[in-house]
Design a binder for these strands. Structure first.
Lengths: 233, 233
DNA sequence: TCCCGTCTTTGCGCTGGCGCAAATAACTAA
DNA sequence: TTAGTTATTTGCGCCAGCGCAAAGACGGGA
């Protein structure tokens, strides 16, 4: 599928870019398709490219030396990822890995090219800074959540966040469908497969979600919000 | 105390700025002194200024609705803080509060002025992006730490990090002195006052730190690293 | 010097959440 | 349809870390 300048307009970082800019970017980029469970890049690779996801879904994750991993973020179509290497002129490496959750395609843009574009186009630099700022704020909020809240609240929050970012409406049942395994949710919330399973089962018993294999359907978002916001005890 | 352009040279974000730039910045800023335990700004305030700490020590912290708080970062002299509002042209608010740990003075620079400087000086924008990138990476690493590591390892890591950022060498004892209460350390590691106290007492018994009221002296950094890196069990 | 507020230590009991193990359940390919 | 693979559920035991309470230790101010 050919990607056009007008498609790139929906990328937040490119919202102020001119058509000319976007065409230049397209000329200096290639598309890469990765099948489900493959990697666009691994943690520690040289950050030679930044990516715009054009289809599919990707998770950014970080592993510790033991191999335990945490999910930092999931990327939906037309979001940028792998951009942290731009500011450095040399030798930056990706601080996280990007693994596909389904067959995915992305536009790969040379980091050095993007950097040179931003040198003469301040609005591009500001838009990228805005993205970084938003990301910092999200990480701070999640850090606080992990430090101060119980697993139950963290899982409820994660589902709410996912519903906003990647959920799809299910027509007849008026629910929001999420495609994540118990393990995925555990990695997002700093918990375990078992605890997440027990929580989801309990919530299904209470009737405000429906669960399936690698599927969670939110039936009553309001009840989740109530759990997420519940004060201690 | 008069602040000169050459003083600002040690600010990482200003490392490529010209003397002329630095003087312009000085002309568009004021100094603010805040006594111990006071605030440069609170979470949610309009982000009208960004700050360069010139003396003292400041912590950035975030509170949840219950009032529990987490320490995101401590700021030492000549570090920039409160800069997240720059990229947005309007209505940004500080996502965290900045409270002094001792009597402190900072240079307050108008966010809008700094933004206009960066529009014509790409190197400034890149240096700020570098700072944001470093901060994102630190937050990601700490998030992973919180999600996957035990309290013991997180506290050891926090002490190591603090030693690098704010520690002062103690001559005769060849130790690194940190000035933080048990509560401070607990808020940095997502733990509690009690657990931190028990850990520090144990480590003192083993002889690789020395503790006092709001003081921790690291005698054998290597032993802390060993604890921080220890694999499970 | 003494007082008072703040910080720290430590005993004690409790429990949220972990993680093994084993049984299902749900998909996939042939 | 069947076999093989992967995801999920749930019983069970366990323990790291929480948090109260009470007793010290420290340090600044008058």
């Amino acid at each position: 599928m050919e990607i056009l300048a007008k498609d790139l307009k929906q990328v937040v970082v490119f919202q102020h870019a001119t058509d000319n800019d976007l065409n230049l970017i397209l000329q200096n980029s290639i598309t890469r398709s990765i099948e489900e469970s493959g990697f666009f890049f691994h943690q520690g690779d040289d950050a030679k490219f930044l990516y715009i996801l054009t289809s599919g879904q990707v998770k950014l994750m970080q592993s510790n030396p033991n191999g335990q991993q945490v999910n930092l973020r999931t990327i939906a179509a037309w979001q940028m990822f792998g951009a942290l290497g731009i500011a450095q002129s040399d030798g930056a490496t990706y601080p996280a890995a990007a693994q596909t959750l389904e067959d995915s395609t992305a536009l790969a843009i040379q980091s050095t090219f993007m950097r040179s574009m931003m040198e003469t186009r301040p609005y591009l630099a500001f838009d990228l800074m805005n993205l970084m700022t938003a990301y910092i704020q999200e990480m701070q909020a999640r850090y606080r959540e992990l430090a101060t809240e119980k697993v139950e609240q963290r899982v409820a929050n994660a589902l709410i966040r996912l519903a906003g970012q990647t959920g799809t409406k299910v027509g007849k049942e008026a629910g929001i469908l999420l495609s994540f395994s118990r393990q995925d949710v555990a990695e997002m919330t700093g918990s375990t497969l078992y605890t997440v399973s027990r929580l989801l089962s309990e919530w299904e018993r209470q009737g405000f979600i429906k669960t399936g294999r690698e599927k969670i359907t939110i039936l009553k978002p309001h009840d989740l919000v109530r759990i997420a916001d519940r004060l201690e005890k």
